[in-house]
Amino acid sequence: MPSDSILVADHVHRHYAGVTAVDVERVAIPRGKITALIGPNGAGKTTFFNLLTGFDKPQTGTWTFDGVRLDGRAPWQVARHGMVRTFQLTKVLGRLTVLENMLLGAKNRPGERLLTFWRGQDRSDLSRAREILARFKLDAKADDYAASLSGGQRKLLEMARAIMYEPRMVMLDEPMAGVNPALTQSLLHHIKDLKEQGMTVLFVEHDMHMVRYVADRVVVMAEGKIIAEGEPAEVLSSAAVVDAYLGAHHDTDLRELIRESES
């Protein structure tokens, strides 16, 4: 267990109509590091994301983010504490321009409150939004509707928008899905960049090459439980983890590992 954890979750349990989706005893995400959350489809990764960010409520479970209890909080409160997520199916705001999407990422705008709506017409945010868009090679698209972006560009915009919020921790749900190889390279670069800026990154990913390349730590989920965690090289060489991805071929090993992790 890493000594300096930004996020610590205990006994998080979520089941739907008797089917267990997430059953995490304890997980800790190290501060200022890039942690990859991997596991086969249906392992509960996205559900776990939803629980931690308040989009779903667990039956049991507590977690603290930077020392503050965040379980039971609404999603917008979680974001205000500095934990911002993206979505597996991108959620860009289609009928707003790319730049407007970015400006909505800025936090604490006085103009966003009804009683002070005339204030803060984004002059400082505007330059920062353009600067981040340029980093993500979206600056030429700034005045286009976000709905006109390609799937990969939407992933980029969603990530750029999350960064606009200046969070302490970014949670990326499959940031590379559907992104072409050239863009993938720059996305990986961006993720490393976030760490250099002092942010903590937690991301879900299926491509093991990328996980190996970018992650400082890997957490493996299967059937709602965390079955392994540690350094990428060590975890990814584990036979059971490889099997978890291969499916039922070496099913027994996986079950054994689950039992081990429970005991």
Partner: peptide
């Protein structure tokens, strides 16, 4: 017209487009 063009109006448009995205950006939808 002033409200629609204000940051407040932009948040409303954002909610029209996707509530979850706005929640993830800390807006009390």
């Amino acid at each position: 017209r002033l409200l629609v063009r204000s940051p407040w109006g932009r948040v409303l448009k954002g909610i029209r487009e996707d509530e979850h995205a706005m929640l993830s950006l800390g807006k009390n939808v």
